[in-house]
Simulated scan of single mutants.
Amino acid sequence: MPQNVLLDEGLTAKIADFGIAKLLRKDQTQTTIKIRGTRGYVAPEWFRNMPITVKVDMYSFGILLLELICCRKSCKQDVANENEMILAEWSCDCYRRKELHLLAGDDEEAVEDIEMFKKLLMVAIWCIQENPALRPSMKKVMLTLEGSVEVSIHPDPFSFICSV
């Protein structure tokens, strides 16, 4: 996924295309093809015989956002507690238990502005909903980050039961 984050001349990060846009024609909203993407960033629908839509890119963006705000990779082997291995699952658990300080770790900025950290975390969780229909559009994410729209997330991102 690092290849999808580009830096401009001022070292400002720019998010590049996550890939699904290249797979769809202009008049197409979904497709069914073999899995494409970087392990750890691939949306669950790739594995569930579900239609592939632009929402797979929102999932990838959500994982990337989690990595950025938690200052760690999406999958980490060398952790004291095995519940912390998968960042997406651990972050949702910490959010449910209201233990955001565990995710913030040693990041003083995050600890000092825990409300902003919480908002970013909620946006990331919103983007990684297992049900693609519950994931926001990038426009809605931008409006949320700007403060124009409130974050609205499903209570449990991993409660989606896929009927195969």
Rank of each mutant, 00 (worst) to 15 (best):
M1S: 09
M1D: 05
P2H: 08
V5T: 09
V5N: 08
L6H: 04
L7Q: 05
D8C: 08
D8P: 04
T12N: 04
D17K: 03
D17N: 07
A21I: 07
Q28A: 13
Q28S: 11
Q30N: 15
Q30H: 15
T31F: 07
K34A: 06
I35A: 06
R36C: 02
R36G: 00
R39H: 06
R39Y: 07
G40K: 01
G40M: 02
E45F: 14
E45L: 11
E45Q: 15
M50I: 14
V54L: 11
V54P: 01
K55I: 08
K55T: 14
K55P: 10
V56K: 00
Y59A: 04
S60D: 04
S60Y: 01
L64S: 00
L65R: 02
L66Y: 07
L68I: 14
L68D: 07
I69H: 02
I69G: 05
C71V: 10
C71E: 13
R72A: 11
K73C: 09
K73M: 11
S74E: 08
S74I: 15
S74F: 04
K76I: 10
Q77G: 06
A80I: 15
N83L: 14
M85F: 04
I86V: 13
L87C: 01
L87A: 01
S91Y: 02
S91L: 02
C92N: 06
D93H: 12
Y95D: 08
R97N: 05
K98H: 08
E99H: 09
H101C: 06
L103D: 04
G105F: 04
G105K: 05
G105Y: 04
D107H: 09
E108A: 12
E109M: 13
A110Q: 02
A110Y: 00
V111I: 15
V111F: 03
E112G: 06
E112M: 13
D113R: 15
D113Q: 14
D113V: 12
D113M: 12
E115P: 01
M116D: 14
F117E: 03
F117Y: 06
F117C: 03
K119N: 02
M122L: 07
M122F: 00
M122Q: 13
I125N: 06
W126A: 04
C127H: 03
N131I: 08
L134S: 02
P136D: 10
P136G: 10
S137K: 12
M138Y: 15
M138P: 03
M142T: 02
L143K: 12
G147N: 10
G147I: 04
S148D: 13
S148N: 13
V149L: 13
E150N: 09
V151Y: 05
V151E: 11
V151P: 13
I153L: 14
I153A: 09
H154D: 12
P155A: 08
F158D: 03
S159R: 06
F160E: 11
I161T: 12
I161M: 13
I161Q: 14
S163Q: 08
V164R: 15
